[in-house]
Design a protein around this nucleic acid. Structure first.
Length: 967
RNA sequence: GCCCGAGUGGUGGAAUGGCAGACACGACGGACUCAAAAUCCGUUGCCCGCAAGGGCGUGUGGGUUCGACUCCCACCUCGGGCACCA
């Protein structure tokens, strides 16, 4: 017999779910259900009448529109925010929720390289496919507010923001960015040093420009950068892995000095660090940002060079208290002073090319075995340059280096101490030079042992200490005026001494480096920058925006295996675009511009992070052609309060996304937001008030005996063994995706169960911030719930609605109101998993009532359907309509619990004897302690167990428990 | 090495000082059925016991408390971040 004949015609199965879902998605679109009104501008239309409600901005980290489409891991966060946003709409908020696309970037470009098809074509096709997949989930987004970063109308404003940053400088004294014009005023007023102390207006135009450019928040710098020939582009520090490879593609990365754009994020280090305290983010993410910024407090100390009064070496140390124990110095191999200290000629003397009679052979080591100091330095630098980052790792911490023939003077002891170069000192941190204190630093100890250098303890280790360098606390020794002081006090005292004597001062250093901002790619935002005949950059005026990407034949930068290959951006090949004649009126102080002249365009493009740094701002006012965002619109959405009622400092109320952006996107976006704040374009000091990092969806992945992944869908389980084509394979769990061949497409789940089931399953799997393994077999549980819910309203055979047939008994009423209270709490706190469990319980009760009475009380069904609406909106809309309502349920009030039904007359509590539960008794609510104890003692089993024993103590927690302690 | 986070039934998980295992999957048993599917009902942490009942139990070991999955100390395992950062 054909099975389908047996299925009742009105059963909630995948095909009915599909029909219901399509119906409501169409209707939401047609009725503009999720259009969110702005107070002014082009988006004031208010079809749902919610403009006066308190605002709430809910945001997802927007997706990259990949050609592979979505798998069920992607929408986890989108469903969570949708549930939250829908819940808040039912709580009376005007909710802004939308979805754009982060569409610049490598994959589209690489695909274009392979196929010759323009990246815009594939990008747009991918965006369309992803929109279709997301629409099928029933996400309540305002469809007008989701730009793609590749839209010219969007990246015009990315370029505009770049100009704002370029035309700003950081006034450290004021603690904020200011327009570049105000810098010129300050320079004229003599606030900052000028070359040779020449008054600013007496400097030549070129010198003026160079001086001003050196202050800008976006600047061109020639410095060692991460050059990745395999990708043909340079990369930010954040995009390079610990083993010196590109995060994308895993190609080797080399440090090369190249002229590149940078952004002065380091100017904001303190604010980026300190303002974390104002944000509702997880401690782990805050900690990751703190570590990345890496603020260390200590001192900078100036060491004179022996025999040279024209040079001194500045070091940074976090342990100024150990200065008496500094027995040698180390410079980074590429430190600029090295050449000078080993120069064969300076002044009238010739000293630097001799080892000197007091240099033991051990100091010269293998690199200085023959020849003079310049030879040794040259050999060592060559040795270091050859080492890839990977080799450095593999060698571990083995110390290498060489004495350079010069000595410095320890300012506390007056003793001559030798100067070394070694690659354990990094040019990029602090001053690129250290004072070495082997007694209190493990690395210095190892180096001192290797090169037979003196070791002086300046902190007394405990008696039982048998290690080498002692890094703990203790009284200072061998340190003259510091002796006896604990570390913290000794630090403070030494800083006082340094500042009094002029040998140094207290100071702060950061691990954070300026952000490398240019890439040699095609598919990114062009810079609004041209170069004149001086080779210095000139910013285009706003009227020249947008600078559109030129058409090119080849999209690929030159890639290479050769670490010495040079970057060749694809835009450089668009010669007609690069060479441009413009009439640019420059500022008077710089003396350029005026009349049509030839310029060359910048051929680098911006990194993918540029567009994602500010997209949330554009969601506010996506069609505004006159401003990034209308100030009145920005103010309106910034006006909300935090959950606890305190004013918020971050614009976005709730931001949900993956933890992988902890130090990339989230740091860059905070930086841009703060610049925009300083310049008066936004009114909040932070972009994201509350951040939730959703976990990953994991899935079983299988490897064959060679270690290769096999298609997870083709693996069968037999007697606890996993077989692929009959061959045993090994199971592991990993993040769902293409690379592990374990992706599950949402389209398959829609087809078998419907989108509401998928939404509910993803929410029910576990807490939002935990990773959870996907298990298709578990989906039937939530699908059955929806079937039962459906059947509790609609007769499967006739399609008729049956409600009101059952009386509403007190137990059910109590369960109803307890459920309302719990679900409301859970959804407000983004604990959808437990909210779903509560709804299961209530629905199971309703199912019993329907079985007994042929229908459920209308009051219960009404509340149940409202509570289900945020989680499974399509079925809720359909049931709501069948229950006789005409308007969408999306803005219906979420049910309120009736406090009278949250309390009961009696409560059953446990009775413990010596901490073990021995019985339960029922006591009236509000009974006093004595009544509790009496009820407990009256319970036969307790009476028996207490028997003649001596009760030493009775603990009563009214309404919770009674606990006897017996001897 | 340093800094976070996690460890609870066969499985996903719930409980944040007060009845451990809510809810769900799976499994087992039953009703319906010629049969199966679907649906509905029941049982389901482990051990002893016919039962009443008892013992054990939240990674390991200790501690605080009348009472600990929850707080404290030490350790183990797994996951994440950083890593010669002076």
């Amino acid at each position: 017999m054909d099975r389908s004949d047996d299925i009742p015609p009105h059963r909630y199965d995948a095909s009915l779910a599909g029909a219901i879902e399509a119906k409501w998605q169409d209707r939401w679109e047609r009725e503009r259900t999720f259009w969110t009104p702005n107070p002014t501008g082009l988006l004031t239309e208010d079809p749902q009448g919610v403009a006066d409600r308190p605002p709430l901005f809910v945001l997802d980290m927007f997706p990259y529109p990949s050609g592979a489409g979505l798998h069920v891991g992607h929408p986890l966060g989108y469903i969570a925010t949708d549930v939250y946003a829908r819940f808040q709409r039912m709580q009376g908020r005007n909710v802004l929720h939308a979805m754009g696309y982060d569409a610049f970037g490598l994959p589209a470009e690489q695909y274009a390289v392979q196929t010759g098809q323009h990246p815009r074509v594939t990008t747009e096709a991918n965006v369309a496919n992803m929109k279709r997949q997301l629409r099928a989930l029933g996400l309540g987004h305002d469809p007008r507010r989701g730009p793609a970063t590749t839209d010219v109308a969007y990246y015009r404003w990315t370029q505009w923001i770049f100009l704002q940053i370029y035309n700003s400088w950081y006034d450290a004294e004021a603690g904020r960015a200011r327009p570049i014009g105000q810098l010129v005023e300050e320079l004229r007023a003599g606030r900052f040093a000028t070359p040779d102390d020449t008054p600013f207006d007496d400097l030549g135009p070129l010198q003026q420009r160079e001086l001003v450019d050196s202050f800008r928040l976006a600047y061109v710098d020639e410095a060692p950068v991460n050059w990745c020939p395999g990708l043909g582009t340079v990369l930010a520090n954040e995009e390079v892995t610990a083993d010196g490879r590109s995060e994308r593609g895993n190609f080797p990365v080399y440090k090369r000095p190249l002229k590149q754009w940078k952004m002065r994020i380091t100017a904001y280090a303190d604010r980026l660090l300190d303002d974390l305290d104002l944000l509702d983010w997880s401690d782990s993410i805050k900690q990751m940002q703190r570590n990345w910024i890496g603020r260390s407090t200590g001192a900078s100390v100036r060491f004179p060079v022996d025999g040279r009064d024209d040079v001194a070496i500045d070091v940074f140390t976090t342990r100024p208290d150990t200065l008496f124990g500094a027995t040698y110095m180390v410079l980074a191999p590429e430190h600029p002073l090295v050449d000078e200290l080993t120069a064969t000629e300076w002044g009238d003397d010739v000293v630097g090319d001799e080892w000197g009679s007091d240099a033991p052979a051990a100091w010269r080591g293998v690199f200085g075995a023959t020849g003079n100091p310049p030879d040794a330095v040259g050999r060592y630098r060559e040795f270091v340059a050859q080492k890839s980052e990977l080799e450095r790792q593999a060698e571990g911490r083995e110390k290498t280096g060489v004495f350079i023939g010069a000595f410095a003077i320890n300012p506390t002891t007056g003793r001559r101490i030798p100067i070394f170069i070694a690659d354990y000192v990094l040019m990029g941190y602090g001053t690129g030079a250290i004072m070495a204190v082997p007694g209190q630093d493990e690395r210095d100890w190892e180096f001192a042992e290797e090169f037979d250098l003196p070791i002086v303890r300046t902190v007394q280790p405990p008696a039982d200490f048998d290690g080498k360098a002692y890094v703990g606390d203790g009284p200072a020794i061998n340190s003259d005026f510091l002796d006896g002081l604990p570390v913290a006090e000794a630090k403070a005292e030494m800083i006082r001494w340094l500042e009094t004597t002029g040998h140094g001062r207290g100071t702060v250093t950061y691990k954070l480096r300026d952000w490398l901002f240019s890439r040699q790619r095609y598919w990114g935002e062009p810079f609004p920058i041209v170069y004149d005949e001086t080779g210095l950059p000139v910013a285009l005026p706003e009227s020249e925006l947008p600078v559109e990407l030129p058409e090119v034949v080849e999209f690929e930068p030159a890639t290479s295996d050769d670490p010495d290959a040079l970057p060749q951006p694809p835009l450089a090949r668009a010669e007609q675009w690069v060479e441009v004649e413009l009439d640019l009126a420059g500022p008077a102080w710089a003396g350029y511009g005026g009349g049509r002249r030839a310029y060359l365009r910048e051929t680098n493009t911006m990194p993918q992070w540029a567009g994602s740094c500010w997209y949330y701002l554009r969601y506010l006012d996506p069609t505004n052609e006159d401003a990034l965002v209308d100030p009145a619109v920005e103010r309106a959405w910034a006006a909300g309060a935090r959950g606890d009622g305190a004013p918020k400092v971050g614009l976005v109320d709730l931001y949900v996304g993956g933890v992988e952006h902890a130090v990339l996107h989230l740091l860059y976006a905070r930086f841009w937001h703060k610049v925009l704040y300083d310049l008066g374009h936004v009114t909040t000091i932070e972009p994201f008030q509350r951040l939730v990092n959703q976990g990953y969806i994991l899935a079983a992945a299988y490897t064959d005996e060679r270690g290769f992944y096999v298609e997870a869908t083709e693996v069968e389980e037999r007697d606890g063994e996993y077989l692929h084509d009959g061959v045993p394979v090994t199971r592991e769990f990993g993040k769902m995706g293409k690379s592990l061949k374990n992706a599950v497409a949402p389209d398959d789940i829609y087809r078998d169960y419907g989108a509401d089931t998928l939404r509910l399953y993803e929410m029910f799997m576990g807490p939002i911030d935990a990773s959870r393994p996907w298990n298709t077999a578990d989906i039937v549980g939530v699908h059955r719930f929806l079937q039962r819910l459906w059947r509790n309203v609609v007769d499967e055979e006739t399609g008729a609605v049956h409600v009101g047939e059952a009386p509403l008994d007190d137990d059910t009423r109590r369960l109803l109101h307890r459920t309302i209270a719990a679900v409301r709490d859970d959804l407000g706190a983004m604990r959808a998993n437990t909210a779903v469990a509560r709804l299961f319980e209530l629905n199971n009760r309703v199912t019993q009532l329907v079985a007994e009475h042929g229908g459920a009380p209308a009051e219960v069904l009404d509340a149940l359907v409202r509570m289900v609406a945020p989680l499974a909106p399509h079925i809720a809309e359909e049931l709501w309509e069948r229950l006789g309502h005409t308007a969408t349920i999306a803005y219906e009030p979420f049910p309120d619990p009736d406090p009278r039904w949250l309390v009961t007359d009696d409560v059953e509590i446990p009775v413990q004897i010596n901490g073990k539960v021995r019985a339960r008794v029922t006591v009236p609510v509000g009974a006093d302690d004595a009544a509790h104890e009496a009820a407990a003692r009256a319970e036969p089993r307790i009476a028996e167990l207490l028997g003649g024993a001596e009760v030493r103590k009775v603990v009563v927690v009214p309404g919770r428990l009674v606990s006897f302690v017996v001897a």
